[in-house]
Structures are given as structure tokens and as C-alpha cells.
């Protein structure tokens, strides 16, 4: 497998708080990588480093290298908006815009200059199909995005992220606000999408990581404790702390 994201000796500070300590990782292309660990361990912080969402938090400082496709995304010539077009993100709470289903999907493409109605129609349909939502909403695309269920809203947000044709999809605990059935649908969706996209997901749910991902990274106090194949990590962890965490002794 090719590596798409390369992190080398990354340190991140929120003002005085040392949130990520000397993290080095290589994330493979077109596969699902899961970040697990207790709250506050830095897994979401690292995820938000990949699309530079941390930039918006005042007092954030980063040292080390975070490269996507061979380019250090924190170098000066990188345009943040272009980066975020390539690295999509889905959040913990479904956050559709207060617009119609159609306009939610079309928002991103319009932002990046697509105005042609036909082209937009096409993008909306493909994105909704990719997010396994098309059949459910095709007859009422003009309805408010709030009229559909939470699980559907989250798939809408995935479709919205896919509409700008990213290479990487970041999922920040994307199922934690959903019921088990909606969660299952999102997990199935992730499985389908991994053939075309690199997916990095943060999850509180270890079973989810075990079910869905190929690679798992275990974080503790801002450090990577263990990083290996998911099967290996859950069946035969190298580190005692990993074993303690996955067997439920803490966290």
C-alpha cells in the first residue's frame, strides 16, 4: 500500500498545552485507518491537523512535518482552501447547512467555481449515490436538510464532503451521535468508500475500529503508543497500555 499522509516528529501545542508529542505515522492510501484512545489523548487534534482545522484555534503552534502526497501542508506555499478541498471532513454532530438537500451538496462545488446547472445536478446525484442516500432523498432534493433523520443528515454531510472530490476523508467520531442502525449504515458506507478514498476515522468505539479499519493507531496523552494492522493490534498488542485499554481496564 502507498503512503498518502506522512507525519514526522509532529508536536502540537495549544498555547501551553502540549497536545501532540513527537508523533510519527504513515497512513496508507485507499484504506481505513482508525484512531483510538481515551478522551483528550490527541486523536482528534491529529485528525484536524490533516486539514488544518486547528489553524482556527488561537495559540496553536506546530513543529515537525505533516505531509500529504509528499507536500508539507504547513509550508508557506500551501493554500489552505485548496488543501481542504482535497481533505474532506465529517464531524461528530451532523451539521447540514440550513439550506435544501440539493444546496447542501452543491455548496462546495459552487464555492470552487462550478456554476453550470447540469454539472451541479450531476455532482449532487453522484455524491448522494456515493453516500448511499440518493434513493431516500431523490424525490425531495428541495426540502430542508433538517427534514431528514440524523443518520441521513450524517450521510448528507458525507455526500457534501465527497462533492468536492477529495482524496482523503476525515471522520471525527462521525457515528457517535447516531443510533446503532444509522451507525451500521455509515460503517458499511465507509467500507464501500475505502476503495476510492483514504479514510481516517477517530472513534471512541473500539469495536467500530476493529470492525471497520485496516490500520489502527492507539493514542495516549498525545503520544502514539501503538500503530499496526487492526487485527494485530486487537488480537496481539505489543504494548501493555494498549492491551489494558482494549481490554477495558481504563479509558
Amino acid at each position: 500500500m502507498n503512503t498518502i499522509i506522512e507525519i514526522d516528529k509532529l508536536n502540537l501545542f495549544y498555547s501551553d498545552f502540549h497536545a501532540l508529542r513527537n508523533v510519527s505515522l504513515e497512513i496508507p492510501e485507499k484504506a481505513i485507518t482508525a484512531f483510538i484512545g481515551p478522551s483528550g489523548c490527541g486523536k482528534s487534534t491529529l485528525l484536524r491537523t490533516f486539514n488544518r482545522m486547528n489553524d482556527m484555534i488561537q495559540g496553536t503552534r506546530i513543529e515537525g512535518v505533516c505531509a500529504i502526497g509528499g507536500t508539507d501542508i504547513y509550508s508557506d506555499e500551501v493554500d489552505v482552501e485548496t488543501l481542504r478541498k482535497r481533505v474532506g471532513m465529517v464531524f461528530q454532530q451532523p451539521n447540514p447547512f440550513p439550506k435544501s438537500i440539493y444546496d447542501n451538496i452543491a455548496y462546495g462545488p459552487r464555492l470552487h467555481g462550478i456554476k453550470d446547472r447540469k454539472k451541479l445536478d450531476e455532482i449532487v446525484e453522484t455524491s448522494l449515490r456515493s453516500a448511499a442516500l440518493w434513493e431516500e432523498v431523490k424525490d425531495h432534493l428541495k426540502r430542508s436538510a433538517f427534514s431528514i433523520s440524523g443518520g441521513q443528515q450524517q450521510r448528507l454531510c458525507i455526500a457534501r464532503a465527497l462533492a468536492v472530490e477529495p482524496d482523503i476523508l476525515l471522520m471525527d467520531e462521525a457515528t457517535s451521535a447516531l443510533d446503532p442502525i444509522s451507525t451500521l449504515k455509515i460503517e458499511e458506507l465507509a467500507q464501500e468508500l475505502k476503495d476510492r478514498y483514504t479514510i481516517v476515522m477517530v472513534t471512541h468505539n473500539m469495536h467500530q475500529a476493529a470492525r471497520v479499519s485496516q490500520q489502527t493507531v492507539f493514542f495516549l496523552n498525545g503520544e502514539v503508543v501503538e500503530y499496526s494492522d487492526t487485527e494485530q493490534l486487537f488480537s496481539n498488542p505489543n504494548d501493555q497500555r494498549t492491551e489494558d485499554y482494549i481490554s477495558g481496564r481504563f479509558g
Binding site: M53, N95, F97, Y107, L111, V164
Partner: peptide
């Protein structure tokens, strides 16, 4: 969260302010 959603799609600050 609405702003984050728009930023994550590559919107600039001005676009987020004006369109979201």
C-alpha cells in the same frame, strides 16, 4: 459547527461569513 462544515469544504473566511 456550521462554520466548521463550510471551512472543511474549503470556504474562505469571507465566504463563510457571507454565504453561511
Amino acid at each position: 459547527s456550521l462554520r466548521d462544515g463550510a471551512y472543511a469544504l474549503g470556504a474562505t473566511k469571507f465566504e463563510v461569513a457571507l454565504k453561511i
